[in-house]
Design a protein around this nucleic acid. Structure first.
Length: 592
RNA sequence: GCGCUUGUAGCUCAGCCGGAUAGAGCAUCGGCCUUCUAAGCCGAGGGUCGCAGGUUCGAGUCCUGCCAGGCGCGCCA
């Protein structure tokens, strides 16, 4: 029972029994609830851990905090790991721990290897993490990248914390935007056929649409050809001609459907969808994010799930009719206004699909449903929670994590992005420019719901300005030391090192050991708070402590006992860095 | 206008359930390579935690008001 990670719990037990004694002695009310808070100290002069229990209880015990702290201290049971306690400041109880007991974490890390830091706090609860879910109307851009990195790391953290994680991408393969894509592909295809016609102001203008169209022309020949005159016949004016671009594009869409007929339209539609979805899959795969499931919005309509969800809402009395449309009375459940489910024209809304999708999530029995959304969707949360409630589900199971878009800079110069013109920085371009490691690291370095400046120049710089290399370098340095060990004709005696851990008594060594033992807590905290940036900061700190140690102490010393103890320590540092970077989806190189 | 959110060092940001003297990186200045990778280390300067109240043993953290920025308020997705 070494487990420094569990030291906190061990101290809690000590405190609890001390408080029981005080209750028996009448120093504390017998029914006193005690919220135990034991923290790691920032200042070594305050010991290793500190408890503020006396300050919290001072009032109900009607006793001066410092005096109460003294009583608690006197009632603490003996524990070999605690060498000393002390009352300090306004009434803190500081615990000084036996260094040897703490050093055992080095052996734990060696024993658990890649498993060190994993816990079972999630107790196998099933969590669904839905993230990215970008419309398949074009390649992922750098805005999606942050959601991808964040969602992937949150999912991995939850898994490390013992949750049963199901990663899912909701494919918005239905709706108006997809129809516009299909029409855009078709128009470009007609250009391939040699037809001359204007491109809609509101169509998808990206180069990838031309590529899809060319492929279609190459494989299917003129199967979808229609004369330009026929297409343009009876269309309203587009924006440049003083018309409305929305009206125009809708007219183009219905023209496409009419001229092609359901079967051929569907083929063109799918050509666009499949091509883009494949691209997104590849892109995310290369970015190191993988899914258990790609969930199709279309399938919700096809299987009647949307209809079932609407029926269910109706039977629970939350649906009414107004102006020819069917409304969800979400205001009754805390939303700002009621929402349309079925339009006047009989079509269901995107929201209706989403109600069905969340009903589906509920039916799959997840204990927790995590949605990672762009922060611009935050107004959407109340209506989805309302829907879950109206469906008879537990809205508190849904956790919506918002991700702010990242603003790109090159040095101090802002990189302009515009979706409209089709000129935007794609995730793939970003990966090509800065690499997967830097992209991943930078994306999760900041709190997710905060705006972030992503400096491309910094991410690619191979200097000490770059935090990714800083952490990776610590890992590579340890590996390098072991290579040097070989070259000197020495070998590490693992067992001897473990038996001589008490030789590690330099300040740097004590700090490192304390940091190593903190790692499992960091992973747990980062997971439960959906906050990968805690892990990033931890790794930076650990790397800094290691670099400081490296510069102040020689590892490959003549004294074999000391050498092996130090090698075991730095090997533990290497393992923890590798584990942490692994959770971030960043590589841990052996040489740099 | 209403709702959500942010305001901490010159810049970019941490700060756990309210805890001890508010931290880090970059930038600036000064040192350290004949010794395990200088992609590194050591040191220095730099702060009215937006402003004003309140809650309490204690507030960057919680509450209220104000000021300033961002986002959202479609029968779009």
């Amino acid at each position: 029972m070494s487990g420094s990670p569990f030291m906190k719990k061990r101290l809690e037990t000590l405190l609890r029994s001390a408080l029981e004694r005080l209750k028996t002695a009448g120093d504390l009310p017998a029914d006193q609830e005690v919220p135990l808070q034991i923290e790691r100290t920032r200042d070594p002069a305050h010991g290793d851990f500190a408890a503020n229990t006396a300050m919290l209880l001072a009032k109900s015990a009607r006793c001066d905090p410092r005096r109460l702290a003294e009583k608690i201290r006197a009632a603490l049971p003996e524990d070999p790991a605690v060498i000393r306690t002390e009352i300090a400041g306004p009434g803190f109880i500081n615990f000084f721990l036996d260094a040897i007991a703490q050093h055992r974490v080095i052996a734990d890390i060696h024993g658990q290897g890649p498993g060190f830091g994993r816990s079972s706090i999630g107790a196998g609860q099933r969590v669904q993490v839905e993230f990215v879910s970008a419309n398949p109307t074009g390649p992922l851009h750098v805005g999606h990248g942050r959601g991808a990195a964040y969602g992937a790391v949150v999912a991995d953290l939850l898994e490390a914390a013992g949750f049963d994680v199901h990663r899912e991408y909701y494919v918005n393969d239905a709706g108006r935007q997809m129809d516009i894509l299909a029409a855009s592909v078709w128009l470009r295809y007609l250009e391939n056929c040699g037809e001359v016609l204007p491109f809609p102001a509101n169509g998808y203008r990206g180069e990838y649409v031309r590529d899809i169209a060319s492929d279609l022309y190459r494989t299917q020949g003129e199967r979808y050809r229609t004369s330009a005159d026929e297409v343009l016949l009876g269309l309203p004016p587009d924006e440049p001609q003083g018309g409305d671009k929305e009206e125009y594009i809708d007219a183009v869409v219905s023209k496409s459907k009419n001229l092609l007929g359901p079967e051929r339209y569907c083929e063109v539609f799918n050509a666009g969808l499949d091509s883009i979805l494949d691209d997104i899959r590849d892109d995310l795969g290369e970015f190191g994010t993988h899914y258990q499931e790609w969930f199709s919005e279309q399938s919700l309509t096809e299987t009647g799930a949307v209809e079932r969800a609407l029926e269910r809402l109706k039977s629970s009395g939350y649906v009414y009719e107004k102006d020819g449309a069917q409304w969800f009375a979400s205001t009754r459940l805390g939303d700002e206004k009621d929402r349309v489910l079925v339009r006047e024209n009989g079509q269901t809304t995107y929201f209706a699909s989403d109600v069905a999708y969340h009903l589906n999530k509920l039916e799959r029995g997840f204990d927790r449903i995590v949605n990672v959304w762009g922060a611009d969707h935050h107004g959407y949360i109340p209506r989805v929670k309302a829907a879950i409630q109206a469906l008879g589900g537990d809205a508190s199971k849904l956790e919506v994590l918002l991700v702010q878009f990242a603003v790109l800079y090159r040095g101090t110069e802002r990189v302009q992005m515009s979706t409209r013109s089709g000129e935007f920085v794609t995730l793939r371009q970003l990966r090509n420019e800065v690499g997967k490691d830097a992209a991943r690291f930078f994306y999760v370095m900041r709190k997710s719901d905060q705006h972030m400046d992503f400096d491309l120049k910094l991410a690619t710089s191979r200097t000490n300005e770059n935090p990714v290399y800083y952490v990776q370098y610590a890992h590579a340095r340890v590996c390098s030391v072991f290579r040097q060990l070989d070259e000197k004709g020495w070998a590490r005696d693992l067992g001897r090192g473990m038996r001589r851990l008490e030789r590690l008594c330099e300040p740097h060594e004590l700090t490192l050991v304390a940091s190593l033992s903190r790692y499992p807590e960091v992973v747990e905290q980062a997971a439960l708070q959906y906050a990968p940036h805690h892990l990033v900061h931890y790794l930076r700190d650990l790397a800094a402590e290691f670099h400081g140690y490296y510069n102040s102490c020689q590892f490959l010393v003549e004294d074999g006992d000391l050498r092996d103890a130090r090698l075991n320590l730095i090997d533990a540092v290497r393992q923890v860095i590798a584990n942490g970077l692994g959770l971030l989806g960043v590589s841990a190189p052996e040489t740099m």
